[in-house]
Design a protein around this nucleic acid. Sequence first.
DNA 1: GTGGGTGCAAAGACTTTGCAAGACG
DNA 2: CGTCTTGCAAAGTCTTTGCACCCAC
Lengths: 142, 142
Amino acid sequence: MNLEKRVEEFKKKARALGLKVTPQRIAVYRAIASRHDHPSAEELYEELKGKIEGISLTTVYRTLSSLETVGLVQRVPTLKDKVRYDARVEPHSHFICMKCGRIYDIDVIPQVNRKEIESVGEPVSCTAICHGICKECRSEEV
Amino acid sequence: MNLEKRVEEFKKKARALGLKVTPQRIAVYRAIASRHDHPSAEELYEELKGKIEGISLTTVYRTLSSLETVGLVQRVPTLKDKVRYDARVEPHSHFICMKCGRIYDIDVIPQVNRKEIESVGEPVSCTAICHGICKECRSEEV
DNA sequence: GTGGGTGCAAAGACTTTGCAAGACG
DNA sequence: CGTCTTGCAAAGTCTTTGCACCCAC
């Protein structure tokens, strides 16, 4: 789906969920939805501060937190101590490059042995994380 | 394998890898290896500070970092901004309880569509994260 | 209009670092 | 004994919060 359509849908859903649709929230959502690299709050702020007047790092943090609460964005599981976000909220998985740290989406839902999980609890969703070397880094290694 | 055997093996490996085997490092490793809840540095420190004289939070952080570098412990992927560690370094997956936040080990390696991953890069390892409600929380819900 | 949203600055949580003293090999 | 490790305190990084002002509904 193209970006502007997703932004329009975002406005509708946000309003329906009781969130006010402010220019800052639109900007944050558009920024995160247009990227596939799962940016942190800081990175989104860096991208926006030139383009959008009246945006602060605090607002980016608060917007991400609000959107996460209502399920319009998701956190990405990582090993690092910085929180990263993803505007794709439907099930999918991630590939983390061990060299450059970039995180890629992969359209995969892991198949796991149900019995093993149920010995621990009742699963709601499963996602995979693959570590490896991405194509870009591989080609630089020549 | 029982705990003391793992600790002995740890000493051997650590020495072989060029790390000095200090009482603090042994204590940190024993603590993390004896638990299955993937503690953070702070939690390990809380456990140790009563029992071990001469242990500081700084040392716990530095120990975890050193052990991670040589592959004797691993970070656990999480959505939160606190780093958690695991003394199980062979491939396995995790179950995160959406209610209490506890993280459980599950002996599963996800089966994923290889083709989909290879469009992004060359995978080295894959792990799954399942979110759900653990048995303990489920039984409290009555 | 009003309740939620925003910016700023300050505080809070988690982690790393500099330095002098100490201990493993 | 030399080098790596430790503890303390201070600094650094990432994130949240208090408060006064503002704007979407």
